[in-house]
């Protein structure tokens, strides 16, 4: 057995990728975390109480996973969907009836998107009810609220893409809402023109929403998520009760 392991893990190729042995001792377990670009954003050790389900219910992590699932399913959907007013709706029908597992793909994207909006609120409530926004975590709360707003806009921008009645009229309501921004003649009209790419919803609107949905907003969201995660570590991990005894500055 150990011979097979040696053959697999003790060769030059393996060692050029992973510069440590199997993480069965504390040293290698530490190396795993800081030699890996994806893992090193997390600390080598964690507080036992942070691992309890009741500490956070994993809400933030669930959000990160939903974002990942949405990115993957969205990437696949982009192969089948063309943001053109005469074609978009037909592409939705094709996804439902012609593409293998197309309907499951679209369903996953839709339900994960709704779940992401819902869990953002739940995550915010968890942070509030555990007093986890207090110093030194104030700024991470601010990033979180910005992420909440971006999540809403991400979901909204995707809402128009199917180009069905539901999509068209929902965006009509939102654009009428933007139009009331005071002063309505200048700001409202201007903002609405900017969002719609015209005075009414049409091809310009669809391409604007599409580009924001598949690139603009996810890019900002991903960037802020990295800062959000990084700040968790820099601010000392999850909030702990003993921090209440440490006075502010």
């Amino acid at each position: 057995m150990s011979r097979v392991a040696d053959l697999l893990f003790a060769n030059r190729v393996w060692k050029s990728v992973f510069r440590h042995g199997y993480p069965s001792n504390p040293r290698n377990r530490a190396e795993v975390m800081f030699q890996n670009v994806f893992l090193h954003i997390q600390s080598v050790k964690v507080f036992k109480r942070s691992l309890k389900v009741s500490a956070t219910f994993g809400l933030g992590l669930i959000l990160a996973y939903l974002f990942l699932l949405l990115t993957l399913t969205g990437f696949l959907l982009m192969f089948y969907y063309v943001p053109e007013v005469h074609r978009a709706y037909a592409d939705m029908k094709d996804l439902e009836f012609a593409v293998s597992f197309g309907v499951v793909l679209r369903n996953m994207h839709r339900w994960a998107a709704h779940a992401m909006v819902l869990f953002t609120f739940l995550h915010m409530a968890r942070v509030f009810f555990t007093g986890a926004y207090k110093a030194p975590r104030e700024f991470n709360w601010v990033i979180g609220i910005i992420l909440l707003i971006i999540t809403l806009f991400l979901s909204l921008s995707g809402y128009l893409l199917p180009w069905d009645q539901l999509a068209y009229w929902a965006i009509t309501i939102v654009s009428n809402l933007i139009r009331t921004t005071p002063p309505a003649d200048i700001m409202g009209a201007g903002a609405s023109y900017l969002v719609l790419g015209g005075t009414q919803i049409g091809q310009n609107t669809l391409i604007r929403f599409y580009v924001m949905h598949v690139f603009g907003l996810p890019a900002i969201c991903g960037l802020l998520m990295v800062v959000h995660f990084w700040r968790i570590r820099k601010d000392g991990g999850l909030a702990r009760p003993d921090e209440s005894n440490i006075p502010l500055r």
Partner: peptide, 23 residues
Amino acid sequence: NAPLEEMADPKNTPNPAKAPWYF
């Protein structure tokens, strides 16, 4: 299944027309 209504029709306003649930 995710909802999918008829194709967008600017001449046919549904009553009521509703925004996404979070709005």
